[in-house]
């Protein structure tokens, strides 16, 4: 986006700051396992997608990430399923997260790619550290591309989230954390 005036530059800075604070707030809720509050930040029409990464030839990068429209991914779901996952963790019987894992979301490299009406397209990097029981460690690292939508109650909501995990064979036994 071109920035013409000082006023626009300030607005832009404020927007960046606001978006970053929203992403950090989300990470905080997840790390504190306040999932029922986190799910309120997810738009009802969200598309939450984590593709599988293929090893492809140079020139075939378009096929590198599995396609949400026709292929298999790690996650490809909407709010009903995400809410089901929250409900599942909150049973206290979801053994993969019981006893609870220790999870730390680090979000960085936040870039606003586009602003369109009340929606903002944001790219970021994530580093999600999961440690559970005595010594089990998983590290999920990658890029996220979100569409965040202004919301009168929560400030922002996640309307679309694409999570590009930098792994081919998943090196964790399961994925029971949110990104």
């Amino acid at each position: 986006m071109a920035i013409d005036t000082t006023q626009q530059a300030i607005e832009r800075l404020l927007l960046e700051r606001e978006i970053e604070q929203f992403l950090y707030h989300e990470a905080e809720l997840l790390d504190e396992r306040r999932f029922s509050e986190w799910i309120d930040l997810i738009a009802d029409d969200v598309h939450y997608h984590m593709p599988i990464r293929r090893n492809v030839k140079f020139g075939e990068q378009a096929r590198e990430n599995s396609d949400a429209d026709s292929e298999i991914s790690w996650f490809d779901e909407g709010k009903a399923t995400l809410a089901g996952r929250v409900r599942q963790i909150n049973t206290g019987l979801h053994w993969a997260e019981e006893p609870p894992s220790r999870v730390c979301h680090v979000v960085s490299n936040v870039q606003i790619l586009d602003v369109h009406g009340d929606e903002v397209k944001v790219k970021s990097r994530f580093l999600v550290y999961r440690n559970r029981l005595q010594d089990e460690v998983d590290l999920f690292v990658g890029k996220r591309e979100d569409i965040l939508r202004r919301d009168p109650i929560t400030g922002w909501k996640v309307a679309k989230r694409t999570i590009v995990l930098d792994q081919n064979v998943l090196l964790a036994k399961n994925i029971t954390v949110f990104f």
Binding site: W74, K173, T176
Partner: peptide
């Protein structure tokens, strides 16, 4: 195909709501 695929993804595999718990038991 889409309905089938999405059902399998949320049910099965490491991100599946059901099978993620199998992994914990087999693991430990």
């Amino acid at each position: 195909k889409d309905a089938q695929r999405r059902y399998m993804m949320r049910y099965c595999g490491p991100g599946g709501m059901t099978e993620s718990d199998d992994m914990e038991n087999w693991n430990y």
